[in-house]
Design a protein around this nucleic acid. Structure first.
Length: 922
RNA sequence: GGGCCUGUAGCUCAGCUGGUUAGAGCACUGUGCUGAUAACGCAGGGGUCAGUGGUUCAAGUCCACUCAGGCCCA
């Protein structure tokens, strides 16, 4: 007879197949309809706060794996903090200004006036904010999505401007020249993103710079000889602006005698090649020296009556040239940097059309590219040209007009790092912040320590203007408080557009005069660096609003130079403190081989494709399972493995739910009344909880995945739950043993669901709703606190030994199975014997049922002859013998027992009793 | 080229302050069950710990270099 429907088999609405792509949409709707985010905050309104401040992604394009990872990690931090009892609001933001948007707008609509460009940029940003918002929400990230912060909102723009004024009024801000890419035909400066590199033919020349310094007085070898340093350049037109010659401090140089009275200085390594090039035979090295010993010598400019200094630069390399580098601080990035160090002037005597200014001897009014030839002529005439040759190299071109660009120094606005000790204060603050991982501290420290002053101006349209007036006559900047305050107020009211839309008369009081008496003013039209925009977010979003400083900033490790950096300088500059207490960084998403994802490599995986195929919880599990502090690999195999892991967790939850369907709180037993095995699982659970708490506290999410998976597989699935099945299915609904099991299982399920909620946010919610929920959403819950009563190390040790004994028995059973003596382990009886006292104490312990634990029909602690299998475990001192089970197979529980043959229903004693009890009920 | 960092089984990760034959889960192979069933159990194979050299009685664990990769800068 089939007794299947007399069993208490698991029953649940929690399906084995998750169907996440569909199910998640329902859950999203549930969260939104019930306004769960705000209810969570409401439930924590009297709690301590933990504020993770969102770094604003750029409102451009769809989200990619990196942004998805970042948002998921943030969400896991916030949800876990919430479940620890904190009030942890999440205000997402977007970075809206800046060149990439302006660039795309210009590509689409062509060049427009500022007002139109700004309007189009605003629309463009708005569009992508909406797109990204939907994509972020789909990841399961809960937050204040209806009221995000936008760097282009009027009040935020006003904050940017006001913060700039703080810097201005505290004396940090100054104007100075700096070389930028300059298009001579568009007459505009260009950002890096607007530069296209193309192969170009160019002239390159080797030029002599004579030593003025008298080397003969130092070393007789030089007496009566003309000594020259040899440089190489591909831009002869920058020679008029030459102010120095740079050498590498650790590079070896040689003085080579080439004629009776002529000596050249070149890098040792390149010497032979150069002599060949210059067609010099019989060159003789007369002296060797390190670059650092050359510092400070004076050279003569090759055609002007001017000194060119010998300086040191780390940028010098030996790939091309002579190892000595012509340096014009007004015409090159590196030249500029090193020029600042040596206090050279940023000399750039070229106008916006690319013509030399009037003060340039020989070449005034000449276009720089045309001047190239004339300069070479002059050098030839002076005898300073050693060699001239054509080369092909990649040269920057304007993305718009495709013409070659030049480096030209233009006036820019800076924030000084030395004023008010900004740099040293920032460095001190860095030391106070908790950097996770620790190496982040070194990284940002080195950057702040070495960076030049902050160039905050851009010659673009889409941004917050440096809204200041300049006297056209004397150049003075208007700093009157009323005028600046009025401007700030206007921006707050109308947005930064007001600066471009209204005339001077709107901002300046009637009859306003400059100190010099002039009434003629011009607007500064430069806009602020977007890093300044996002750098003030702590002020715009947190300060005097939520909580300041933030407890955490969490971004990719590239932000050490980016947002962490600009926020730090901004905050230290105006408030004297870092805006964050801790900074957590994650690595970058790479492919299976550890290479970065790029379109050209064709290895890009979009988050959308994973969500559509597998669901956001799988993506979340991925973010959790890998150690994000390093690079995070993503591949099809990794996804497949994660899906397996997900299924294991899901099925464990499903089994627990199924076996608790008839259970409710009132039926739970007191801890003291639990079976030993159930006390044991609670002790194991306590151990797991401790690990999980620690992992959440240290933000080591991958340990949560590892621990939970191992617990589900080893502790639950293959041991505890497997053993429990007989009790759960076959015992009476009211049996103490079964209620004891359910009491423990309920606790286990609770812990799993709640501790997984920050990670598998959808699945946890689904399970929570089916498990007789106490709150509206699992995300309003708290982590299950540690319960001291459940801790029980001796019990854990005892059961660890039981588990070892079990493994030996399973091994013996496997041997019997291989020989086809048994199939199902219930077909076997086990005989045990041990000379180990500890093992023996287990064998004869009456509180545990070994037959249950081994899932066999009977266990006898004695010896027997003629066993089918005889297995000895040396380390335990245990002898295991296996025989066919005595008695017949009970039709209901499938255990073998001698009572079965005597029973008219072919049932064992236990099952007959359960059936009797069930009949009584109906 | 410089700064910061990484490299343990096919995949994801453990391996504490250097100390027994390097661990786990998944995957793989074999197998049992068919009352967690596109599930569950059991058993098994698989690693010269990126490479080379060094320190040490002893190195995956410390040092140097090399190779591969990532972020930032040049």
């Amino acid at each position: 007879m089939d007794y299947k429907n007399t069993l208490n088999l698991p029953e649940t609405a929690f399906p084995m197949k998750a169907n996440l792509p569909i199910k998640e949409l329902e859950i999203l709707k549930f969260w939104e309809d019930k306004d769960i985010y705000n209810k969570i905050l409401e439930s924590r309104k009297n709690s301590n706060m933990f504020v993770l401040h969102d770094g604003p992604p750029y409102a451009n394009g769809h989200i990619h794996m990196g942004t998805a990872l970042n948002k998921i990690l943030k969400d896991m931090v916030i949800k876990s903090k919430t479940m620890m009892g904190y009030s942890s609001p999440y205000v997402p933001g977007w970075d809206c200004h800046g060149l990439p948007i302006e660039h795309n707008v210009e590509k689409e609509y062509g060049v427009m006036d500022k007002a139109k460009t700004r309007k189009a940029c605003r629309d463009y940003a708005t569009k992508f904010i909406d797109i990204q918002k939907q994509e972020f929400k789909r990841l399961g990230v809960l937050g204040q999505w209806d009221k995000p912060y936008l760097t282009m909102s009027y009040d935020y723009e006003a904050t940017i401007y006001k913060e700039f004024l703080e810097f201005l009024n505290n004396g940090y801000v100054y104007e100075s020249k700096k070389p930028v890419h300059w298009c001579m035909s568009c007459k505009t400066s260009l950002a890096l993103a607007e530069i296209e590199y193309e192969e170009d033919k160019s002239i390159s020349i080797y030029v002599k710079f004579d030593f003025i310094s008298d080397l003969g007085s130092e070393d007789k070898k030089f007496l009566g000889k003309a000594v020259s340093a040899v440089i190489w350049t591909t831009t002869p037109w920058t020679l008029p602006a030459n102010l120095a010659v740079a050498v590498g401090p650790d590079i070896d140089y040689v003085f080579v005698q080439v004629k009776e009275r002529e000596v050249l200085l070149v890098a040792k390594e390149l010497c032979d090649k150069l002599m060949e090039k210059f067609e010099i035979k019989d060159a003789q090295i007369i002296k060797e020296t390190k670059g650092k010993d050359l510092e400070g010598y004076e050279l003569a400019h090759p055609f002007y009556d001017r000194i060119s200094k010998m300086i040191l630069s780390e940028y010098v390399n030996l790939e091309v040239g002579t190892g000595l580098v012509h340096t014009a601080p007004g015409h090159g990035e590196e030249d500029y940097e090193v020029g600042l160090k040596y206090n050279l002037s940023i000399y750039s005597p070229v106008d916006e059309d690319g013509r030399f200014t009037q003060d340039v001897q020989y070449f005034a009014g000449e276009h720089v590219f045309k001047a190239n030839e004339k300069i070479i002529e002059l050098l030839k005439k002076n005898g300073m040209l050693l060699k001239e040759e054509e080369i092909v190299h990649s040269y920057p071109h304007c993305w718009r007009c495709k013409k070659p660009v030049i480096f030209k120094a233009t006036k820019q606005w800076f924030i000084s790092l030395e004023k008010n000790d900004l740099r040293s204060k920032a460095l001190e603050e860095i030391k106070k912040v908790q950097w996770i991982p620790k190496s982040g501290q070194n990284r940002i420290y080195a950057m702040v320590e070495n960076r030049p002053d902050w160039c905050i101006s851009r010659q673009r349209a889409w941004g917050v203007p440096i809204a200041l007036f300049r006297c056209k006559k004397c150049g003075r900047i208007v700093k009157d408080k009323e005028i600046l305050d009025f401007t700030a107020k206007s921006i707050e009211q109308f947005g930064a557009d007001v600066w471009f839309e209204k005339d001077n008369v709107y901002f300046l009081p009637k009859d306003y005069k400059c100190e010099c008496g002039s009434q003629d003013f011009e607007k500064v039209e430069d806009i602020l660096d977007v890093w300044f925009d996002s750098g003030v977010s702590h002020k715009a979003v947190l300060y005097n609003k939520i909580k300041w400083p933030a407890d955490m900033y969490l971004e990719g490790s590239d932000q050490h130079r980016g947002w962490f950096h600009s926020s730090l300088l901004e905050s230290v500059g105006t408030l004297g403190k870092a805006p964050y207490k801790s900074v957590l960084t994650h690595g970058f998403v790479v492919d299976a081989k550890g290479r970065k994802m790029s379109k050209s490599l064709g290895n890009v995986i979009a988050p959308q494709s994973i969500i559509e195929k597998y669901g956001a919880d799988i993506l979340r599990l991925w973010a959790c399972a890998t150690d994000y502090r390093e690079d995070i690999k993503l591949s099809n195999e990794i996804m497949t493995r994660l899906i397996e892991g997900y299924r294991k967790i899901r099925n464990t939850i499903r089994f627990l739910l199924g076996n608790l369907s008839d259970f409710y709180k009132e039926r739970s037993l007191k801890y003291e009344d639990l079976e030993e095995i159930d006390k044991w699982i609670l002790a194991e659970l306590e151990n797991l909880k401790e690990k999980l708490f620690k992992a959440y506290e240290n933000y080591e999410f991958h340990l949560i995945y590892q621990n939970v998976t191992n617990f589900c597989i080893n502790t639950l699935s293959s041991f505890y739950l497997d053993i429990l099945k007989d009790t759960l299915y076959c015992d009476s609904l009211n049996s103490k043993k079964r209620l004891s099991a359910q009491t423990a299982m309920k606790e286990v399920l609770d812990v799993l669901i709640k501790f997984l909620a920050p990670i598998l946010s959808f699945t946890a919610e689904e399970a929570y709703q089916l498990n007789k929920p106490e709150k509206e959403s699992v995300h309003m819950e708290y982590f299950v606190p540690t319960i001291d009563k459940y801790k029980n190390e001796p019990l854990r040790e005892k059961w660890s030994l039981i588990s070892k004994i079990r493994l030996s028995v399973l091994k013996a059973l496997e041997l019997a199975r291989e020989q086809k003596y048994i199939g199902n382990s219930l077909e076997a009886d086990v005989y045990l014997n041990s000379n180990n006292s500890l093992v023996k104490s287990i064998l004869f312990d009456e509180r545990i049922n070994l037959a249950d634990i081994f899932i066999v029909s009977h266990v006898f602690c004695k010896s027997i002859d003629n066993a089918l299998v005889d297995y000895t475990d040396e380390t335990l001192g245990l002898i295991v013998k296996v025989t066919k089970a005595i008695g017949e197979k009970c039709d209901r529980c499938w255990k073998f027992d001698e009572s079965v043959s005597k029973n008219e229903n072919h049932l064992c004693k236990r099952c007959q009793e359960v059936i009797n009890e069930q009949r009584l009920k109906f």
